[in-house]
Computed example of a mutant assay.
Amino acid sequence: MNNTNKNVLKIDNLSICFDINGKKCHAIRDLNLTVNAGELVALVGESGCGKSTFGQMLVNLLEPTKGEILFEGEDIFKSRRARKEIPQKIQMIFQDPYSSLNPKRKIGWLLEESLDIHRKNLSKEQRIKIVDEMLELVGLDESYKDRYPSQLSGGQRQRVSIAIALILNPKFVVCDEAVSALDVSVQAQILNLLHDLQEKFNLTYLFISHNLNVVSYMSDRIGVMYLGSIVELGDAVTLSKNPIHPYTKMLFSSSMNVGEADSGKVQITGELPSPSNPPSGCTFHTRCAYCTELCSSARPELQELPDGRQIACHYAQKFYQESMEKKQ
């Protein structure tokens, strides 16, 4: 994938806290991340870890409690111009193509609406031409303009959702579980389409998913989230083949196919703690087989390992060294 090594997105100590029945719920906590132009970065983790909340902040649906989201160097919440331009620069493809499309509107109207709002200089004929071209790009012909979402299959609806997301020619696309609601056979088609469109338009993707097989195939880098924070971030191939953080090991072990070698397999134990009452110290320590007194009392910061990955674990260097020795 095309990677210019230019930061298009920089997240600095991002947090968001909700008040739920009088209790503070930290959905995202001091999250740091950079994404390069043309890159596909995936975020994985259990339901409730904050992946989708983070994605919604990127498209201005939620405002952070603290921290910064810098897109092309501008804070999207402090710069009025940046905030106004976000719909044209950052778009989201939602999980469920059944509920994300207005069932009372035809496909042509749904596609043209964004152009009507954000491209007022275009004539009706120009907008129709762009709609036709966009449908062709996602594998549909112009006859779909006169159909309603209920007349389309799940895969066709998601193709329309992709067309809607790309019709304003954004630079950055958030894919929030974009294939999880589709049949397995259709998932591969949509993933290939997303990959082809990324190459064609030099798009930058944030791919939110719980499917580790999908993100290992699609991604340049993978970030593993736990209770609102990133606990491991690194090259997709390296991280998939040799996870270091105990939670990452647990996730990838659970995704092993039947019959796959289970050497070093780590069983999933316990449940995800509530964000309104997170554990002290390392938030994963209540489920970690390697927990020590240090883990329960002090919160680990992300540290970089020799292979370039970042891990939030007090014993990251030790676990990394052990993994290298096993390879020898």
Rank of each mutant, 00 (worst) to 15 (best):
V131M: 04
S209P: 03
R127T: 04
N211W: 02
K145C: 05
E199M: 12
G155W: 06
D196A: 14
Y144N: 06
I162S: 03
S180M: 05
D141K: 05
L135Q: 04
I130K: 12
D176G: 00
K171G: 10
I164S: 09
V131F: 02
H195A: 12
F207P: 09
C175W: 01
N202W: 07
Q198I: 12
D183G: 04
G154A: 11
E133P: 05
Q187E: 08
M134Y: 11
N169H: 15
I190L: 04
L194V: 10
A181C: 00
N213E: 14
Q158I: 03
A178E: 01
I164C: 11
I128E: 14
K171D: 15
E142A: 14
P149M: 06
N211E: 13
S153R: 02
S150N: 13
S153N: 02
L135E: 09
R157M: 10
S143T: 15
S209A: 15
L212G: 05
L137D: 15
L168P: 11
V131P: 09
A188K: 13
Q158P: 07
A181M: 04
I208K: 12
E142R: 15
A188H: 12
N169F: 14
R157E: 06
V179K: 02
N211G: 00
R127E: 05
S153C: 10
P170E: 10
I167N: 06
G139W: 07
V214N: 06
I128H: 13
S153P: 08
I208Y: 12
I128C: 11
P149Y: 02
L140Y: 10
L194A: 05
L206T: 12
I128S: 14
K129P: 01
L152M: 08
F201D: 09
Q158L: 03
I190F: 06
V174M: 13
Y144S: 03
E133F: 11
N192S: 14
S143A: 12
L197Q: 04
I130N: 11
D176A: 10
L203G: 01
S161D: 01
D146G: 12
H195P: 02
P170N: 10
Q198P: 08
A165Y: 03
G154K: 08
Q156H: 13
I190R: 00
Y205A: 02
L194G: 03
V179Q: 03
N192P: 12
E177T: 05
